[in-house]
Amino acid sequence: MSNTITFTIDGVEVTGQPGQTIMEAADAAGIYIPRLCALEELSPHGSCRVCTVMVNGRPQAACTQPIADGMVVENDTEQILAIRRDIIDMLFVEGNHFCMFCEKSGNCELQALAYRFGIAAPRFPYLFPKRDIDATHPDIFIDRNRCILCGRCVRASRDIDGKNVFEFVGRGFEKRVAVNAEANLADTDAAATDEAVNVCPTGALLKKRVGYAVPVGQRKYDHKPIGSEIEKK
């Protein structure tokens, strides 16, 4: 049995190791597949669907789908790009993403994806949901207006911090991130040094008293699109 797997992404031959996901193999090959819930140090979640690719003609999440010999993956096609754009659009209209005063602006992965896709305005009507803020903790806060339910904080708190501070509650439109306490974030053992705080792709989980620390023009996605660090390889 051979210990490398050969498949194609957009017609380009890619090799990977058994057990790798499509995203892992693509990253190693310098092919960027957009993602929001996936993060290298966390277990795959498969929830945001931004990494949707066509695998042998069927849509699959690249972050969870293992590679197989002879697999035909489509990543950079008109059809896939349209699906991803719609998902990003929906994430924007389903929350209250006021980038103009958000401390994460310029370093936000959701915003950066919209920039990469050249989105000037979403094509769906805004929902303006009522979401709450938990600012009880002395050093960190949750702004659920900006939460995209990627589950990164849930996984990081459970698997890296070993604290299980966050979990999802509710279903569908009512789904939200809750904290493992009777009432508020202040009642948990969450700390500003937790990896859970660092991994939030948006400004939903932020450290207090940081503010707009990096000037406009020097932030992560001011000049280079998200994913260009992978494509450079």
Partner: peptide, 18 residues
């Protein structure tokens, strides 16, 4: 539409959930 307020309501739209 010029600017975030024309595009998504902007700061005035913060009242939309109230």
């Amino acid at each position: 539409s010029v600017g975030d307020c024309a595009i998504n309501g902007g700061i005035p739209a913060m009242r939309n959930a109230v």
